[in-house]
């Protein structure tokens, strides 16, 4: 079935090694390092590594960009307590994301949505062996510092929570812990990568159980990548200005024809078929928010989505996964066109 080849293996197997991408970011920082020595630059880039590493060096770019590599082909599940986290782990999730409320409930509750209760996060960390992630409000350095101090494995600077800074995101190079950011198009993704994000996910429209927006955002990112790679260097320079990103970063991405960091799908994934669809569109893995624990068959559904994400290119296995759930038990979902513009989460922090 040739249609299953889309968008081709090239999106996932690229000829530039992981170490070259890490080097790229260090090289970008090198010029700034020199300027910093002369007092002409502020601290907005990774620190160079010594030639030989004799004692363990923590928080390097290789380990920050590396962790998401080992999440690929997997499912990160939103959970609100230890019991849900254990269900996720037993089902084969590659990580859990601890929230105070599932995105669906955030949407319903209104008010200010903040970082989850740190005691709950801590409790989850003590009870599961897989990585534990948590969300912070866009621009909230202190919530991020606290989570780093707590030992959370990855931080999602998320539009699901209420942003505290309408203009700026966190400078993620200042942290030893890797960050996740949402994006709706290539420009947004590269802006976040230039701020130090280690993992990009589509924003989709969280808490709707409707994968429509995630599909849209993934296709836009993929199409943007193909179209910039066909531009002349001058036009790409122009595009970089339009995107408000360093030209070098756009050049690298267009060479790779993919994002230089791991790229997940998120926002409205509710069934195994949804997850497999996002993988087919070029996602490296998926986040499932409300889709699992807002359904009435979370155990089976969690297992089924894990299977479908890993085996997305094998219709027989995806069918088997789809049979493990019952459509009657799926979360109801929200028609996105029924939402008022101010109810959209995806327009926060662009």
């Amino acid at each position: 079935m040739p249609y299953l080849e889309y968008p081709s293996k090239a999106v996932r197997l690229y000829n530039v090694g992981f170490e070259k991408i890490v080097e790229f970011f260090y090289n970008m920082a090198e010029a700034r390092d020199r300027l910093r020595d002369e007092g002409l630059w502020f601290d907005y880039s990774p620190k160079a590594l010594p030639e030989r590493i004799e004692v363990p060096e923590k928080g390097t770019l290789s380990v920050k960009y590396g962790l998401p590599i080992y999440q690929k082909g997997g499912v990160c599940m939103d959970v609100t307590n230890v019991e849900q986290a254990q269900i996720a782990e037993e089902a084969g999730a590659v990580s859990v994301m601890v929230l105070d409320k599932l995105p669906y409930d955030v949407r319903k509750a209104g008010g200010v949505a903040r970082m989850a209760d740190v005691k709950v996060i801590e409790e989850v960390m003590e009870h599961v062996t897989i990585p534990v992630m948590a969300k912070v409000r866009i621009g909230h350095y202190m919530e991020a510092r606290l989570l780093e101090e707590l030992g959370v494995d990855m931080i999602d600077e998320s539009e699901v929570l209420t942003p505290v800074d309408a203009k700026n995101h966190i400078n993620k190079f200042l942290f030893k812990v890797p960050f996740i950011n949402g994006a709706r198009d290539l420009g947004e993704a590269l802006r976040r990568i230039s701020e130090g994000a280690s993992l990009i996910r589509t924003k989709g429209e969280a808490g709707t159980g409707n994968v429509e927006e995630a599909v849209k955002h993934m296709k836009i990112i993929m199409n943007d990548l193909w179209s910039v790679s066909s531009l002349s260097p001058e036009e790409r320079m122009h595009k970089a200005r339009e995107y408000k990103v360093p030209y070098e970063l756009l050049e690298l991405s267009s060479r790779l024809k993919r994002l230089p960091v791991v790229n997940f799908a998120a926002g409205g994934i509710a069934t195994p078929a949804d997850a497999a669809l996002m993988m087919w569109l070029g996602a490296d893995g998926v986040f499932v928010g409300s889709g699992i624990f807002k359904s009435s068959d979370p155990r089976e559904r969690a297992e089924a989505i894990v299977l479908a994400t890993s085996m997305w290119d094998d219709p027989e296995s995806v069918l088997e996964a789809q049979k493990m759930i019952s459509e009657a038990k799926s979360m109801m979902g929200i028609d996105i066109s029924s939402l008022r513009p101010e109810e959209l989460l995806q327009t926060r922090g662009i």
């Binding site: 590594l49 030989r52 590493i53 004799e54 004692v55 363990p56 060096e57 923590k58 928080g59 390097t60 290789s62 380990v63 590396g66 962790l67 080992y70 960390m125 990585p131 780093e148 030992g151 959370v152 494995d153 990855m154 030893k176 812990v177 890797p178």
Partner: peptide, 25 residues
């Protein structure tokens, strides 16, 4: 946890010509 992930040069038996960069995640 992840914040303790590190890089370290390793000495590997039979690869004496240069250390090997170990990335531990």
């Amino acid at each position: 946890r992840q914040r303790e992930s590190f890089e370290l040069d390793l000495h590997i038996e039979g690869m004496d010509e240069a250390p090997y960069r170990g990335i531990f995640i």
